[in-house]
Amino acid sequence: MQTLRSAPVLLLLFACVLPPGPAIAAAPKIHTVTLGAFRKVPYTPPDATPDDKSDESSTLRIRALFVDEHQKEWTLGELHDVTDRSFTVRRALRLNDALPTEAVARWIWQPGPWLLVDRTTGHITALHLPDYDATVSDVTWFRDYAAYCGVAPTAKGNLLAVVAQLGGRRAVVQKTIGSWPQANHFIPVCQPAKWQRLPVRVTMQPTGGTSATYDVVGSVSLVEEGDNDE
C-alpha cells in the first residue's frame, strides 16, 4: 500500500526556499529640536569704550540648541518661525582671541551668523545672507525675508539696506544708504526694520538718518524642506 505524506510539511519546506519578499519600509525618524534656558556670558562689543559698562552692552544672553538631547550649537536671541516645521535663530560663537605670542587660549563670546533649523529632520543650515556683517546687521524677519543693514565688501565700502529671501541667490532689495566705515557712528547702526504685509513693504532707517520704504517683490517661501530620509 502506498503511503501519502502530509501536504502541510511539503508546503512548509517549499516556503522556506522562496526568496524573501520586500522589507516593510521603516517609518521615518522624527527628531526632537529644543532650546535650553537663557544664560548670560561676558561680551565686549568691537566699538566698546571704557565707559560702556552697562549690563546690556557687556553681556550676551545665549542658550543651547539641542537635537535629540544632543547639543549642536549655542544660539543668541529669539527664534523666528519661517514655516510650521522650520525656524531661524542666530548663532553665538565662542572664539579663541589669543594672540600668536600667547600660549594660553583666550575664549570670548561673539554674535555670529544665522541658522535655519528643520524641526522634523533636525538638520541645521548656516545661512549666508548677502552683505551681512555680524557687528552691524540686526535682522528683522518677516515670513522668509530678512531685512537688515549690511556692509558692501568693497575697498570704499558702503552701508546698505538689504532684504534677502531664503533660497534666493541675490538680495531682493540692496540700496546704498550711507558710507562705511563711519567714525563715531551710532550704536546700533540702524533702527529695526518695520514690515508691512499688504503690499509687502519694509521701512529701514540708519540711526540718525532718513528712513526709506522699499517694495519687496519675490516668491512666497523658497525654503526647501526635504523629506526625512533617515
Rank of each mutant, 00 (worst) to 15 (best):
A146P: 00
S221R: 11
V162N: 10
T83W: 14
L99A: 14
L198I: 04
D55W: 03
V33M: 10
R106A: 11
R94M: 09
A193V: 13
V117F: 05
I62N: 02
R94Y: 11
A134R: 06
R39E: 10
A164L: 01
V139Q: 02
D118K: 03
K40M: 06
Q196N: 11
G21T: 03
H70C: 06
L159F: 06
L12D: 14
W109V: 00
T140C: 03
H185W: 12
P100M: 04
C149K: 00
H80T: 14
P42I: 14
T83S: 15
F66V: 02
T121D: 04
W74S: 04
R170K: 07
T125M: 06
P111K: 02
K194Y: 11
V217R: 15
V136H: 04
L65D: 07
L95M: 09
P181R: 15
C149L: 03
L10P: 02
T176G: 02
V200T: 14
P45F: 08
T176S: 07
R94Q: 12
Q196A: 13
I62M: 02
N228I: 07
L79C: 00
I108E: 02
R61T: 05
V67H: 04
T75I: 06
K194C: 10
P50Y: 07
T154K: 06
Q191L: 12
S58H: 02
V216N: 00
I30D: 15
W195C: 10
L198S: 08
L12K: 15
R61K: 08
A37W: 04
H31S: 15
Y43M: 08
L99V: 03
A155N: 11
S86Y: 07
G168K: 03
P19C: 14
A105K: 13
H185L: 15
G226V: 01
Q182S: 13
R106W: 01
M204F: 09
Q110S: 05
V220Q: 08
H70F: 15
T59K: 14
D84M: 00
I108V: 11
L222S: 14
L116W: 04
R201V: 05
S137D: 02
Q174C: 08
A26M: 11
R91N: 07
K40V: 00
P19A: 11
V104K: 15
E225W: 06
L13N: 08
D227T: 08
P20Q: 13
P192W: 01
K72P: 01
P113F: 01
D84Y: 00
T75S: 12
L93Y: 00
G21M: 05
G150F: 00
Q71D: 00
W180K: 00
